[in-house]
């Protein structure tokens, strides 16, 4: 591995990462903008209002992609954590840290849009249903991980501590996935991943899928940008430390 580094080995070099992500980012941003515009057009002018839910069904086009990103964000944190614990991959650390606030935001967005939809549909902003509760716990896990990053100053130690916690917390993801099947309460079971019979009419399904892809692309744009910022932040930190050292050495020489 030391002689011929593979793709992931080369990614460990922050300069290579900055170059690659800098090349990819404009294209990805453009793709996101186009997908978002197409998706929003479809949502507002193509998708019909539901015969029961009326126009409130449009909330779903934000809610479902946010909920999906809440879970995908945590999966990315978990995979990156495994990468940083096993291979000590320096960019895995950065990837895990950068994904946390973005994932937390989408989790919060899923919770808020869900409760805005719940008020007219279920008659209440919040129910202690299994699915809602487990997403709320996912949000708390995000907050705990972010707090742990803040509490430990040294980045490498904070990264490994957060990685351990993230892997322990990843036990929560399957619980979210299966909670609807286990408890069968108010929240509807998954309707997208059923292959046998389409539960959603194409006029709703197509805009929803476009929005899903658009949101996913948006996540990666934000994630790559946050990772680049984190790499640069660490460089600035290192530069400042060397400046302080140099200043101290200068003072020592004068004294």
């Amino acid at each position: 591995m030391a002689d011929t580094p593979g793709f992931f080995g080369r990614l460990a070099n922050p300069t290579f990462f900055l170059k690659l992500s800098g090349a990819v980012l404009p294209w990805l941003t453009g793709l996101t903008v186009i997908l978002m515009l197409v998706g929003l057009y479809l949502v507002f002018f193509f998708a019909p209002p539901d015969y029961q839910q009326g126009e409130t069904v449009k909330i779903m086009f934000i809610h479902a992609p946010s909920a999906w990103l809440a879970m995908m964000g945590y999966s990315i944190v978990t995979i990156a954590s495994i990468g940083s614990l096993i291979w000590r991959h320096p960019m895995a650390d950065v990837a895990a840290k950068a994904a946390l606030p973005i994932g937390a935001c989408f989790t919060l967005l899923a919770l808020i849009t869900g409760s805005l939809w719940g008020k007219p549909m279920w008659g209440t902003y919040w129910v202690w249903d299994a699915r809602l509760t487990s997403v709320l716990i996912l949000f708390f896990l995000y907050l705990g991980l972010m707090a742990l990053w803040q509490a430990i100053e040294e980045p490498s130690r904070a990264g490994r501590a957060a990685a351990i916690l993230a892997i322990v917390g990843s036990v929560n993801l399957p619980i979210i996935k299966f909670s609807v099947d286990w408890w069968h309460t108010l929240h509807q079971p998954a309707s997208l991943t059923r292959l046998d019979a389409p539960a959603i009419h194409p006029s709703i399904l197509i805009p929803l899928l476009v929005m899903m892809v658009a949101f996913t692309a948006l996540f990666f744009v934000l994630h790559l940008t946050a990772m680049r910022t984190e790499v640069l932040r660490r460089r600035v930190q290192a530069l400042r430390l060397t400046q302080v050292d140099a200043a101290r050495a200068g003072e020592g020489a004068r004294a």
Binding site: S134, G144, L148, I152, G169
Partner: peptide
Amino acid sequence: LRRGGLLLALLVLPLYVP
């Protein structure tokens, strides 16, 4: 860690839910 006790509660309580 500083403030370890409060942080501990934030980290562990969500895991106690099941």
